[in-house]
């Protein structure tokens, strides 16, 4: 019998494994696809945690929009030589320090979580889009406005930085550091 629990743990494990593959991947496209898998697994988790709206957003916005953006960007770069140059060397010393640090961080986090005596369990009651919408356009109106500004700013700056070279030639006397 497959319970919600086992489904959750399975999809969580899937997300973890896929994330590890993202981080350690060599091919950009492969890594992107693993990221999609990871996001989808997380979306399943969301659904199991009783947040179908969030799960839908995860699939549509993350896996759909943002990852497609990544794919477009990768297509523009043509990364053949770059990947070979900067691919992580397996077993190389450069992994040791970060992993040690990360394990430490994880330990600290887990200890913090287990020490904080959280008894709550997730109530398998669905919080639907309506509740979210009421909150968003009620108390969180200001946050929504700010988020829209943020998106606008992202749009403008994305357009500006990614302008074609010809358009930027007039700014060539700028220092690199100024723009980046």
């Amino acid at each position: 019998m497959i319970t919600i629990n086992t489904l959750f743990y399975l999809s969580g494990l899937l997300a973890i494994v896929a994330s590890i593959k993202v981080v350690t991947g060599k091919q950009t496209i492969h890594a992107l696809l693993y990221l999609v898998v990871s996001l989808l697994a997380v979306a399943v988790c969301f659904y199991l945690m009783g947040a179908p709206f969030a799960a839908g957003l995860e699939v549509i916005v993350y896996a759909g929009a943002i990852l497609v953006l990544f794919v477009f960007a990768v297509m523009m770069f043509g990364l053949a030589q770059d990947e070979h140059l900067h691919a992580p060397k397996h077993g190389a010393g450069q992994w040791l320090g970060p992993i040690f640090l990360s394990v430490l961080l994880l330990l600290v986090l887990i200890i913090a979580i287990s020490n904080s005596e959280i008894q709550q369990v997730l109530i398998p009651k669905v919080i639907d889009a309506k509740d979210v919408g009421i909150l968003l356009y009620g108390p969180y109106l200001l946050a929504v406005e700010i988020a829209s500004f943020l998106l606008l700013a992202g749009l403008v700056s994305g357009y500006h930085y990614a302008k074609p070279r010809q358009a930027m030639q007039s700014d060539d006397n700028f220092q690199v550091g100024d723009e980046i």
């Binding site: 640090l101 430490l104 961080l105 600290v108 986090l109 200890i111 913090a112």
Partner: peptide, 10 residues
């Protein structure tokens, strides 16, 4: 973060 969280957690 490890340091701070360590202080908080332990």
């Amino acid at each position: 973060v490890v340091g701070l969280a360590g202080v908080v957690a332990l």
